[in-house]
Amino acid sequence: MEKYITLPLTEEKIRDLQAGDYVYLTGTIYTARDAAHKRMTEAYEQGEGFPIDLTNQTIYYLGPTPAREGQVIGSAGPTTSSRMDKYTPLLLKNGLRGMIGKGKRSQEVMDAMAEEGAVYFAAVGGAGALLSKCIKKAEVVAYEDLGTEAIRRLEVENLPVITVIDCQKHNLYETAVEEFQRTESIRDY
């Protein structure tokens, strides 16, 4: 199903999303990838808290290319999410509602998503030039020294993503491939 969602996400909006839904997101999201996740976790463990309030927020696993003059941002596609799995349950316990990336997630992440009420979207990997067109504003809000890995606040308009794991642990990566194999009747394997 096609759905248009205005951010921030709420528990109610998340309950309505199912694996397989094609979603257009509009509103504020934050970027963070490997180094920012590590630093956020260390800051939390040292009692300093997170540099941004995660309540109902969505994180896009993204490290963009630099913007040319007149551009908001450079190429801006998703990176592989599983590298963030180690850090993700802590963020979910602290209010994170949505994640945008690509690729599989661990069982621990799926369990924490179901418990806290969160959703995992995939953006198309390798379509960074196209996806950059949906980003209307970009601003570094933390860890500027990390360069491309800094935390950025983005304003997005109709960012196209696919609901891969919903809050009931339905996983499109498993069901879509099974479904395709069933319908295609692959015989001469």
């Binding site: 490290g63 290319t65 190429s75 596609g77 198309v124 390798g126 379509a127 960074g128 030039a129 996806l131």
Partner: peptide, 18 residues
């Protein structure tokens, strides 16, 4: 989407992938 992405990257000299 990938095909569209490729056209934008080439025309605007933006990296195909970040």
């Amino acid at each position: 989407q990938l095909s569209e992405n490729m056209k934008i990257a080439e025309a605007e000299q933006i990296a195909i992938c970040q």
